[in-house]
Simulated scan of single mutants.
Amino acid sequence: MDFSGKDKATYVQETFNSIAKRYDLMNTLMSFGLDKGWRRKAVYTVEARAGMHILDVCCGTGQLSMELAETVGVTGKVTGLDFSEKMLERAKDNISQSSFEPVIHLLQGDAMNLPFEENTFDGATVGWGLRNLPDLEQGIREMIRVVKPGTVVVSLDMAKPTLPVFKQGYWLYFEKLVPWMGKVWAGKAKAYQYLHDSTVEFPAQQELARIFERSGLIETRYQNLFGGVVAIVSGRKLS
């Protein structure tokens, strides 16, 4: 993957700063409006309940944070962390137009070095974020470190479908149409080419589940969504 002479962290930060304004629109278009349902499944998988404090890593524009907030309610709390200041600005705007503003706390930070004590949270999610990290396993270990024993770590991200014909159609769509859509609706074809390239390099859902296990989680599994285009990978921290 070409980072134009920059390290991955800098490239990713600049890329997401550049697409923050149209990020939610593009997600809806690219997923045919299915992304909200996928986020709800992630909330269910992390076992969020009223009164819990959940961490949302790489929270972006706050869409998953708001789904979590709806579940934990006014007695709970959601902490959303992201590297991109522009994405956080969009998150603040989105949350300010919702009823969840008192529940969600946003901060800028590095997923590779989370600014929290061990065993702080009742679970952690990351939506379309792990593939952007310079060191995938370090990012997973950090999420494990800051959640309480017995709680769940969840990743929601693009995956690799295996069904013949469907698989070929998916990759053609992602390689050719998504950058075109990025150019037309966001004016950022190169940024959406990165989304394709990063998905190609990201481990398949089966392998990511094994990485979760190798990182110290138990009960690791993956759930394919929309034919394996997207997957939820999860694991539980040892009690």
Results as ranks from 00 to 15, higher is better:
S239R: 13
A231G: 00
D24V: 00
A91L: 05
A20N: 01
R214W: 00
L88P: 00
R210E: 11
G33W: 06
I19K: 10
V103T: 15
A204I: 02
G139Y: 10
Y23F: 13
A111C: 02
D35N: 13
Y170R: 11
I218M: 09
V46K: 10
Y173V: 07
F32T: 12
F174A: 15
A209D: 12
I104N: 07
I211F: 06
Y23D: 05
T15A: 00
I104R: 07
T75F: 07
R90W: 01
K148H: 10
L114I: 08
S98A: 08
K92Y: 00
V178T: 04
E117K: 14
P149G: 15
L29S: 03
E85M: 05
S96I: 00
Y173R: 11
E142F: 09
L25D: 07
R22W: 06
A111W: 01
I140W: 12
S31F: 13
L136C: 05
Y44W: 06
W180Q: 12
G76K: 05
M66Q: 09
Y192E: 08
L217E: 04
N27T: 00
K183G: 06
G33Y: 05
G33P: 04
Q193T: 12
A124G: 08
R221K: 15
L136G: 10
F83S: 05
D122I: 09
V43C: 01
G127E: 14
G76H: 05
Y222Q: 12
K237A: 12
K183C: 04
